[in-house]
């Protein structure tokens, strides 16, 4: 990774955050908790057919054989096509759902229901409509935070996500992207050992998304925590994660040996055995990464192919000349 290419990113980061405010987050009033390791062991999840569905619909396996150890302080991105079970995996990690088979351990002990060592940024903002933005963020504060310290921390987080001017607004009076940032701030307020983020930047415009990604990196650098980040954006994963897993149907369960068009042409119902980790890769280099590097371009090609997106050309051949990150929407 060359120094010259990273400079611009660093400069933009600094500008976006208006100085090193994220640094002070490390010494937040409630103090940073240590990052905790997460270990999935042979995890599977099958949903029983719901009462409303026709009798012929059998129990639906969504996840199977997910085995993975996330190191303390690591940022893990979870990629996969829509409906493959990313949210389910995250919910199980946070104790919001329990596995049908296998287990999850956090810091060596099994997860409990609504595990207090985790904080969740849900896929939907899930803000309390009768509370202001600031009061919603304060819901995330760890139990027993002193009043004054809590208020300062909320103000700090709102500043970070750029919502200071909207602190007194109700969720109904802010945009979808703002609501999502509020939800992110609420999860950050927890100062958790494990931060579970379910597409936290999904509803944001491209520029805000970049800012928020950088914010997350700064928060992570300042107060190390283990992050499990669900995303469907390959570039986001490459930019933020230490490691990326791709959830999907194992190639063996689909007819083709390769991964070419499987993701798109998935036969509904018929041959699903539940998604598992089909690719796992470590992202080289330290953050912030150069979005245009050839190395990342090659990884991007592999991930996109895994997601079933044909890149119209041999990824390896054109990778080195690709400088413009493109989003696979």
């Amino acid at each position: 990774m060359s120094a010259s290419t990273t400079t611009s990113t660093v400069a933009r980061r600094a500008a976006a955050l208006g100085g090193g405010s994220a640094r002070s987050l490390a010494a937040g009033p409630s103090g940073a908790k240590a990052a905790l390791a997460v270990e999935f062991a042979g995890l599977g999840r099958t949903f029983a057919p719901s009462a409303g569905t026709v009798a012929s619909v059998a129990a639906r396996p969504v996840l199977r054989d997910v085995s993975l150890t996330v190191r303390a302080g690591e940022v893990l991105a979870i990629l996969g096509t829509s409906g493959c079970g990313k949210s389910t995996l995250l919910r199980i990690a946070g104790g919001l759902d329990s596995p049908s088979t296998g287990s999850v351990q956090i810091d060596g002990s099994p997860t409990t229901a609504f595990d207090t060592r985790c904080a969740v940024g849900f896929q939907e903002p899930r803000l309390l409509p009768w509370r202001t933005v600031a009061a919603n963020v304060s819901l995330g504060l760890p139990r027993g935070t002193a009043r004054e310290a809590g208020r300062a921390r909320v103000a700090e987080l709102l500043e970070l996500v750029g919502l200071t001017a909207f602190a007194g607004h109700r969720p109904a009076a802010i945009s979808g992207g703002m609501a999502q940032r509020t939800s992110l701030a609420r999860a950050l307020a927890r100062n958790p050992g494990v931060l579970l983020l379910d597409e936290p930047f999904g509803a944001l415009d491209a520029l805000t998304r970049l800012k928020m990604q950088d914010l997350l990196l700064d928060v992570h650098a300042a107060a190390p925590t283990t992050v499990l980040l669900v995303t469907h954006d390959v570039d986001e994963a490459l930019q933020l994660a230490d490691r990326i897993i791709l959830l999907g149907q194992e190639p063996a369960t689909t007819d083709a040996g390769g991964t070419r068009a499987d993701g798109n042409a998935r036969a509904p119902g018929a041959t699903t055995f539940g998604a598992t980790i089909v690719q796992e890769l470590t992202v080289p280099g330290n953050r912030p990464r150069d979005r245009g590097s050839a190395e990342l371009a090659e990884l991007r090609g592999r991930l996109l192919a895994g997601l079933g997106i044909d890149r119209h050309g041999d990824a390896r051949g054109v990778a080195s000349s690709t400088n413009i990150p493109h989003f696979p929407y």
Partner: peptide, 25 residues
Amino acid sequence: RQLVEAGRAFGLRGVRLFTAVQLPA
């Protein structure tokens, strides 16, 4: 349910969950 679940995920239960989420709702 999503709000109640969010409340639980942020450590609310029992009376605190009731007064913070269910009652206002």
